[in-house]
Design a protein around this nucleic acid. Structure first.
Length: 320
DNA sequence: GAGCCGTGGTC
DNA sequence: TGACCAAGGCT
């Protein structure tokens, strides 16, 4: 059997057992998260999904709260300048998500009368919404029937069904077919299954050291049965020190602290300007200067931020 | 499809 | 301690 093929699907009876066990586990052990109260607006769910892209729950919680106090509807956010969204995003990371969330709010206002659409296709057409986020909003906010596939779900499926330590690097068609085949027929049960498997992956079937002894389907796990073989590839890791991402982040930190716009030389000198600047910018400027970035990299990153629309320059002044 | 895009917690 | 990782999306 080619390695791209998923191992044999369990019998219908065994799949029912997985549904029962994992859904039951979820009902007993799920975290109490504010975007999962059952009374959330679709917008609240949508904001949570944007913030949770590649970002841990713990860091999202406070920003989600303040964001929704300030912009309780898509129209509220759409009425703001995009730069304010980037500033309010704070240090959540990947600030282009804030930019895309703003753009999505504008699109919701223009295309959908200010109401977050419920269908997978309409959601997918919004800026910053890919296959995961479209399915997640459709299921979690509207109770639609869709197949949610995130990194947690992929990992659970890889272990439980395919007997592998980790899913492949990129989502495959076979994985999607597997996820669809495992989805309960019943609508309510399918909604629960999506969130249950994701939660199992987040709390028990974790990437590093899974808590198999607490897993409700430990005795059904193909990976455990195979003796927990190692992954067939090495995660490549993410370089950070000296990267453009680090420098861009330091520049954006200065811009977030500067509400009115600042002299462009604060950034284009790599944080070593000849001009005076407001005292409240000092920490961010120092952090930028400490990188000692080569001028070529500084130029590239500054131009990149402008090109990406994360910074605006006008008459020598830069702002978000 | 591989590479890029932020940030901070964890072991 | 530094490498890995976290509810991805886009080019």
């Amino acid at each position: 059997m080619p390695s791209s093929q998923i191992s044999a699907l369990p019998s219908a009876r065994d799949i029912d057992l997985l549904h029962d066990r994992i859904n039951q586990w979820y009902l007993q052990h799920a975290r109490d998260l504010p975007w999962r109260t059952g009374a959330n607006t679709p917008w609240e769910v949508m904001v949570s999904e944007f913030m949770l892209q590649q970002t841990p729950v713990k860091r999202v919680l406070p920003v989600w709260e303040t964001w929704l106090e300030r912009w309780p509807t898509p129209a509220d956010l759409a009425a703001e300048e995009p730069g304010e969204a980037v500033r309010a995003w704070g240090r959540l990371g990947y600030p282009r998500r804030a930019q895309r969330l703003h753009a999505a709010a504008v699109a919701v206002l223009e295309r959908h009368g200010g109401k977050v659409p419920a269908s997978y296709e309409e959601l997918l057409a919004l800026p910053g919404v890919g296959s995961y986020t479209a399915a997640a909003i459709s299921v979690f906010a509207f109770g639609r029937r869709a197949t949610v596939i995130d990194t947690n779900i992929r990992r659970v499926h890889a272990r439980l069904i395919s007997g592998k330590a980790l899913p492949s690097k990129a989502l495959t068609a076979a994985e999607t077919r597997l996820a669809e085949a495992l989805m309960p027929e019943d609508l309510a049960e399918s909604n629960l299954w999506n969130v249950s498997v994701m939660e199992l992956g987040a709390l028990i079937c974790t990437a590093k050291s899974p808590s198999c002894e607490q897993c409700p389907v430990f005795d059904r796990c193909a990976w455990v049965a195979a003796g927990k073989p190692e992954a067939d590839y090495q995660p490549k890791g993410q370089a950070w020190a000296g990267t453009d991402r680090q420098l861009r982040g330091a520049m954006l930190s200065v811009l977030r602290a500067a509400s009115g716009g600042v002299d462009r030389t604060l950034l284009t000198t790599g944080g070593k300007p000849d001009v005076a600047y407001p005292a409240e910018l000092a920490p961010a400027i120092r952090a930028l200067a400490a990188l000692n970035s080569p001028s070529e990299q500084i130029d590239r990153c500054y131009a990149g931020l402008l090109a990406d629309g994360l910074a605006q320059e006008k008459a020598g002044l830069v702002s978000l």
